[in-house]
Design a protein around this nucleic acid. Sequence first.
RNA 1: GCGAGGGUGGCGAAAUUGGCAAACGCACUGGACUUAGGAUCCAGCUCCGCCUGAGGCGGAUUGGGGGUUCAAGUCCCCCCUCUCGCACCA
Length: 864
Amino acid sequence: MQKEYDPEFVESKWQRIWQDRQLFRVKEDPAKKKYYLLEMFPYPSGNIHMGHVRNYAIGDVVARYKRMQGCNVLHPMGWDAFGMPAENAALANNVHPAKWTYQNIDTMRSQLKRLGFSYDWNRELATCKPEYYRWEQWLFVKMFDQGMAYRKKSFVNWCEKCQTVLANEQVEAGLCWRCGEIVAQKELDQWFFRITDYADDLLEYCERLPGWPEKVVTMQKNWIGKSLGAEIYFPLKNGDGHIPVFTTRQDTVFGATFMCMAPEHPLVLKLAAGTDQETEVQAFVERIRSQDKAKRTSDDYEKEGVFVGAFCINPFTKQQMPIFTANFALMEYGTGAVMAVPAHDQRDFEFARKYGLEIVVVIQPNGKTLDPATMTEAYVDEGILVRSGPFDGLENLKALDAIAGYLEEKKVGKRTVNFRLRDWGISRQRYWGAPIPIVYCEKCGVVPVPEKQLPVILPEDAKMLEGGKSPLPELESFAKTPCPKCGNPDACRETDTMDTFVESSWYFERYCSPDYDQGMFDKKAVEYWMPVDQYIGGIEHAILHLLYSRYFTRVLKDFGLATYKEPFTRLLTQGMVCKETLKCADHGFLFPEEVVENDQGLTCKHCGSRVEIGRIEKMSKSKKNVVDPNALIEKYGADTLRLFCLFAAPPERDLDWSDQGVEGAYRFLKRVWRLVERHAAHIQDIKTFDGEKEVTGDLKALYRKIHQTIKRVTNDIETRFHFNTAISAVMELVNTVQAVKKEDILLTPDGASILRSALETVIVLLSPIVPHWAEELWEVLGNSESVLEVAWPAYREEAIVEDEILIVVQINGKVRSRFNITADADEEAIKAAALADDRVVARIAGRPVKKVIVVKKKLVNIVV
RNA sequence: GCGAGGGUGGCGAAAUUGGCAAACGCACUGGACUUAGGAUCCAGCUCCGCCUGAGGCGGAUUGGGGGUUCAAGUCCCCCCUCUCGCACCA
């Protein structure tokens, strides 16, 4: 054995052995209980960062623990490999996105391997490979055939100069991030998935995800945003049909005095045509439309509108209502038109005041009378209906249903459910993504690519264009294709690619049979492994990725490909990795190496002025508070890094980085290493203690501690993934070993045997966390099999039992004394001992005892 | 504004069902070993006060205030504060 702990040596040794023995390779085994542990796969951005290390370290502990518990554990890893950063890098460094991506994958794969995670690397997949996305295209065609994928016009952020679509994040203050051109909204034909068909089901099942954090479930519910209400038809005054409106407040319909429509609403320009308002409306609509989304949803966005020059009729009051187009009305929600009830909606109230519109109160609160003339804000609470014809005197909550019924009866509206959730737009006018398998033919129209012709391969010989424009439309070898239906040679391909969230919506199924070439996955394999028992990843995917995955799973089920509805049984969202920031007034954020410490305190290397220690924030390059896992691995090894990540905080909480904390973790591993080294020789051939023989004193205490530790660690990992307390429990066990003062008792046969048990327990319990270190020490103790294949230890209940327990004595709730008593002492004995205690007697000083409460095995409280 | 989650020593954090607040670690202090110590080992370490002293004694303390209880970090009410999410959703 090496005298000093040398992580570099130990880690490379065991990684080689694991690989040679293919220890993490799994296959379906009906005889064993399966456990599918999945961590969110990374985007191959270049290097592994601390966030990945933490996420994957957490997952690896669970995977290894479950394996030791006897489960057949599927623990795969792969690459979310399509996406825009590859295109940006391509332009910046003149490398092809494919080359850049594959290089990054190689780098990151070796970094993950260096960390010793227990992945079955035979299942590795990359979503940018045709073998992967061909099945996604296959499913797209199937969805198209079923009407689940469809095409419609929709607005996108468009930069005219770059001739490209921009993602929301690429629009900075309304300007193109690259060229500074004003970003416009452009209407393009886009492909959509009909996720709204499943809105109700997705919402309903939110209640049936007990293994998910409530926070995530709530976020999903809000995102789906179901609201019950009614659609009401407001006839146009000129008799040309009606405007449908969605409202959740049909109880206030008698108070609707004007109408607001989204600037994008097709009726707006039609109604204004030929009136005095026409030019003003046109100008307004144009102006609002050119505003980007960020601006239109910003905090200080002022509400404004323009009269369109037409009226509609309130079907209940028969009063005429002026029609406005207003910037706050959203085309995407409801019907794009709002009945405005200024007395009972704050936004409508402000609008009415601004433009001098009529305010009619139709709900009066109890014991107060509202007067429109003096109101300063809308009244939005409950009350009794007034000025509401047949509904006068009704409580407004009851009126909701009554009026909804009346609407249907009179055929002026109907009950409706409205969702905030929109259909999922998947078209991206981008190169580095999976091609949408559609051909447009002048004769046949929209034609899906037949299964036999799949995959539609993304041509890797495309040359990237300046400005980020997709090269696909101009690449004739790709864009031009004969029509699959009629053979027309002049048909053209869809040149948009799919949103990368599509790939990540089914990768967990693909892992079950990653090389399967007869379909998306082997049904038998998926039936065995799915659903994922434990999914682990960042909270940033709480909505989109998880919702899309849930949706896709439902689609697969309806297509008969899957048998379950929910892909992830349990979800853990780990916290972020944070670190303090350093800031100089002149030079902004600084790297630690840009800061010099002298007698002035911390100063900036560039200008010498004082450096402030800023707040603790999520590690990010821009804040210059990142730490590089590679450098740490080099210095301390993977095990230390893993140990620190798991010890510093429970997984769901943010982790504050501490260089000294890493040192501490390293020190602990070295300390145990030396302990084993010192004792290895004399316990080499000793058997572990079986508990049959009675021992006393320190030995008994140590034996007890072993089993208490097993119990605590098992509990901490099993029920709540609190590895930090599990580790501290093991540390206590180590401390107990080192606290044995008379070391010669460890040389006796029983002592050596118990010592061996203690050291083995430490090693085995820590093996999921620091596996290389554990393997090496396990071997040092003379064991031949891998510690990974050792069964997780069970504790002996009888070993845990204490002979003596400490009883705390309180007088009037304050601790005044404590004493030991045999563990089997009954309540009476404990009470008697407490009352006889010298200190207690002195304290009570003869005062009458009113009451004595005895909590067995814990405390006595004497009330005087 | 709405919703969720936090606030415990100098720091990260512990505290099954209400039952010794601060386990474990970091930092710090003192000591040992040493040519050296940023290695290692031993000891101390919430705050305040008291006793001449080794050592002991007392009080306070889980963001603030109130309540329930023999007993509250934990349960109830009010308030402060931080973080995250949603936010013209009709």
